[in-house]
Structures are given as structure tokens and as C-alpha cells.
């Protein structure tokens, strides 16, 4: 069937009128903070208690924007006759966010979960040099890291929980078996 002439024009008018009655999508940003999901690539927070100064992040960074300084300390032997141990102590950890391209590779490679994405994004500066943030600032951003999103209902359970549960079950079984053998 041939369309009625002008029906396309009417359709266009209907679209705009319908859009007018719908809710708008404008974000009133400075008044209403955006509701960002966890792991939004806003800024990188450092959980420095977990950092072992393994330097993996700094080496993997494509932009070379992570600066790490450290020194070694010797920890005296815990038990008499034992050997002294050496330990890396973090002196400086800085990320230059004027270079960072928010690829997240540092977070991926960190073997000890010391780096996290935070949705915090309001850290503009008037001088580009002030975008190099030191460890205290990075540590502060850790407080803004939200809890990870819950797993899907049918998902595999997390590895560490699975391992812990397995151990607990084994232990329970080991405790239960001798008792059962007795009776």
C-alpha cells in the first residue's frame, strides 16, 4: 500500500511530541552526583598495606606514569638462631594522571590487590604538574572504592571462598571420621 502523502511528516511530528512527554535524560551533574557503578575508571587508589614493591605495575604501565621508590630493611630473626630477613619498604608511590590513559593494566597485573579503580573523578587541577599524585593521596582514594558488585546468582563461587570452604570441609571430615570410627 502506498503511504499517504505527508504521513512521514506527521510521523516526525509525533516522534518529537512523544519525546517531549517522556522523562529527560539530562544529568544535573554538579547538583546531583552521578550514580557510577563500582570499578568505574575514575581514579586509581592504592592500598599500600598490600604493596610489596614488586614493581610489576610500573613496568607494565604503557605510559610509564607510575613512580616507585623503595629501600630494603632487615628484619631481625624472629626466633633465636634464625636468619635475618630483608623486606622492601615503600618510600614513594606516585601516579602521574596527566600521562595515565586509564587502561587499568596496573590494576590487572598487581598480584597482591594493592591497586583499585575508584569512581571518584573530580580531581582536576589548574597546573598539569599537580596531577602527579603521591601515595597519601592515592591511599585516601582507597576509601572511595566501593564494594565489588555481587556475583550473578548462578555464578561460580569465588576462588578464595571455594578454597576456604574445601579446607573447612576436609577438616570437618577429618574430625568426624575418627569419631565415627570409634563408635
Amino acid at each position: 500500500m502506498a503511504p499517504i502523502p505527508g504521513s512521514g511528516l506527521a510521523k516526525g511530528l509525533a516522534v518529537t511530541l512523544r519525546t517531549m512527554t517522556k522523562k529527560t535524560v539530562t544529568a544535573q551533574y554538579p547538583d546531583v552526583q552521578p550514580d557510577l557503578p563500582p570499578r568505574t575508571r575514575g581514579v586509581i587508589g592504592l592500598f599500600e598495606e598490600n604493596c610489596t614493591v614488586c614493581m610489576l605495575c610500573a613496568r607494565e604501565c604503557p605510559d610509564w606514569c607510575i613512580y616507585i621508590d623503595s629501600h630494603k630493611e632487615t628484619i631481625p630473626a624472629a626466633a633465636p638462631g634464625g636468619r635475618d630477613r630483608s623486606r622492601n619498604v615503600l618510600d614513594r608511590f606516585a601516579i602521574d594522571f596527566s600521562l595515565c590513559m586509564y587502561c587499568g593494566i596496573c590494576i590487572e597485573v598487581c598480584p597482591f590487590d594493592a591497586l583499585f579503580w575508584s569512581p571518584e573523578f573530580e580531581y582536576a587541577e589548574t597546573d598539569i604538574r599537580e596531577l602527579t599524585h603521591e601515595r597519601d593521596k592515592l591511599r585516601e582514594w582507597m576509601w572511595t572504592v566501593p564494594a565489588p558488585p555481587a556475583l550473578d546468582a548462578g555464578a561460580e563461587e569465588p576462588k578464595e571462598i571455594a578454597a576456604a570452604r574445601k579446607t573447612a570441609e576436609k577438616l570437618a571430615a577429618a574430625q568426624a571420621e575418627p569419631q565415627g570410627g570409634d563408635t
Partner: peptide, 8 residues
């Protein structure tokens, strides 16, 4: 115009 374009 704004509301017809989904804005405020």
C-alpha cells in the same frame, strides 16, 4: 525544544 530532544 530541550524536552523534545530529551534534555532539560
Amino acid at each position: 525544544m530541550a524536552h523534545m530532544q530529551g534534555r532539560l
